[in-house]
Write a protein that binds this DNA or RNA. Structure first.
Length: 247
DNA sequence: AAGCCCAGCAACCGCATTCAT
DNA sequence: AATGAATGCGGTTGCTGGGCT
């Protein structure tokens, strides 16, 4: 099974897996364009990367999703939409492909039927505001909370950010930026606990969240404690938090 | 036993974004 | 600033195995 350029396609063999593993052990991840020639694999770089990320990586968890994982996945999906990599990032040992497949096979039907069941009600209230933040990099000299926590305005793409008939969300105001800054300012390195308030732009806080030190990758805690700074950095300020908390 | 259908999963493809020059 | 290469992501496809007729 070879592609037009003589590159192998289809299922990976044990030999190919071994070659890829040996290569990664020796050279580490990254520089995927160099992997096929160096590892002696007749595969394209994308295929190598995918195989490593989804199957060969050591800490990958296989098997059934646990109830808490599913619960977290549902909440995150409600919050983020189909941002599988971000969702997977909060599910230790799970890959974006795993999450996507699980959602499409197990949960999508439920979600659709729920939408149908509650369709009338939903139309009367408000449509779900799917959040689609596009993760963007921060300035290279920016360390978490060490420098100015600048969330780049371009981090969120308005064109695919909102699927609703609601009036356009207000442009980020100074307050909303402050919201983000406060959010991060409270989380100084070494602090055991930081807090941040959530409320309307000009309102009293409607909720106060707290986080412990970013949870270790191996644990799955309560959803909110689980979300560390890297998650919230990509978190939009016009989120309907109650929707998220009460799926 | 054979054929069909379907669910689950691995892999591919196209595109957007980032990075290097 | 412009451009091409590299990377990462999400949508989709297609293979495989199990259940049913």
């Amino acid at each position: 099974m070879e592609g037009s350029l003589g590159v192998r396609k289809g299922a990976w063999t044990v030999e190919e897996d071994t070659l890829l593993k040996l290569y990664i052990e020796k050279y580490g991840e990254g520089k995927w364009h160099q992997v096929p020639p160096r590892a002696g694999l007749n595969r394209c770089r994308k295929s190598c990367r995918l195989r490593w990320l989804n199957y060969l990586k050591p800490n990958i968890k296989r098997g059934e999703f646990k109830a808490d994982e599913v619960d977290l996945m549902i909440r995150l999906h409600k919050l983020l939409g189909n941002r599988w990599s971000m969702i997977a990032g909060r599910l230790p040992g799970r890959t974006a492909n795993d999450v996507k497949n699980y959602w499409n096979t197990h949960l999508r039907k439920n979600a659709i039927s729920r939408i149908k069941d509650g369709g009338e009600k939903a139309q009367q209230t408000s449509k779900v505001n799917i959040i689609k933040p596009r993760p963007r990099t921060f300035a290279k000299n920016l360390t978490w909370f060490g420098g100015k926590p600048t969330i780049m305005a371009a981090s969120f793409q308005p064109k695919d950010n909102v699927i609703s008939d609601l009036p356009p969300a207000p442009l980020p105001s100074e307050n909303s930026v402050k919201w983000g800054e406060n959010l991060f300012d409270d989380k100084e390195a070494g602090d055991e606990i930081g807090t941040y308030d959530v409320g309307g732009l000009n309102e009293e806080p409607i909720a106060t969240f707290r986080w412990a030190e970013a949870a270790p990758a191996e644990t799955v805690g309560t959803p909110l404690d689980e979300f560390g700074p890297s998650f919230w950095a990509e978190f939009p300020s016009n989120l309907d938090v109650w929707d998220f908390l009460d799926p």
